[in-house]
């Protein structure tokens, strides 16, 4: 593994389009459910342990070389909201383009050809990590961290929240990110033997419901 490659992939400035998405924070701010650092932290914690953990396990399994089409199907089954499935594929397509330019690999080309509309982003993230010579836990770290850093960054813009406070939220969540990564990597390791049913399937009903409402807004700052 290369520590520097991990930093490149996990960098918020990696050109994969994630900055246009709030991870549900925009809808939560509008509904008055995120009003400051404390509620942002609670939001991020819930997202981390549900969709974040699922994304981390999918990414870890893809990094281990599990068939991407099985993982993509597992991601569909764990994403009831069609708005969120569409977002995951759009982000997957954008990440694929960036990854192929950054770490060219036959495997990436093959998956890009197999999913012209994009595979789920965490699956592509795992494949990108694999092409960069990174391991399953590295891929899980990227996905788990992204599940909280996206909403935190978006909330700075949405609420004019002090960026120091938003970063402190991420620092406070760090031990839980570590734990989620351990659980995700452990589950990913069982997929070869037990199939994709071994992957976590944590759901966040309010995120799912509000994603559908948000997709119907005529004007919004973030795409999701």
């Amino acid at each position: 593994m290369s520590g520097a490659a991990l930093l490149v992939l996990a960098d918020g400035r990696f050109p994969a389009g994630g900055h246009a998405h709030s991870g549900g924070a925009e809808a939560a701010v509008k509904a008055g459910r995120i009003t400051g650092a404390a509620s942002l932290e609670d939001f991020c914690r819930g997202r981390l342990h549900t969709s974040g953990r699922v994304a981390a396990a999918l990414a870890a399994a893809a990094a281990l070389g599990v068939d991407p089409s099985l993982l993509d199907e597992a991601a569909d089954a764990r994403t009831p909201s069609p708005a969120l499935r569409a977002v995951a594929r759009r982000l997957g397509r954008q990440l694929m383009r960036a990854a192929r330019a950054t770490w060219p690999a036959d495997e990436l080309d093959a998956v890009a050809g197999q999913f012209p509309k994009g595979a789920h982003q965490p699956v592509v993230l795992g494949l990108a990590a694999r092409s960069a010579g990174l391991g399953a836990a590295d891929a899980a770290y990227c996905a788990a961290y992204e599940s909280v850093s996206g909403p935190a960054t978006a909330t700075v813009r949405l609420l004019s929240l002090d960026p120091f406070e938003a970063t402190a939220v991420l620092a406070r969540l760090a031990p839980e990110v570590d734990r989620v990564v351990d659980l995700a990597a452990e589950a990913a390791g069982r997929v070869a033997e037990e199939g994709v049913d071994a992957l976590p399937a944590g759901s966040a009903p309010v995120l799912e419901i509000s994603a559908e409402a948000h997709a119907g807004w005529p004007v919004r700052l973030f795409a999701s």
């Binding site: 944590g202 309010v206 995120l207």
Partner: peptide, 18 residues
């Protein structure tokens, strides 16, 4: 889909995302 809630469930289950 798996929903976990109540004391002992992973954090944030009662929060604004879940």
């Amino acid at each position: 889909q798996e929903l976990a809630c109540g004391p002992g469930a992973p954090g944030g289950w009662d929060g604004p995302a879940v």
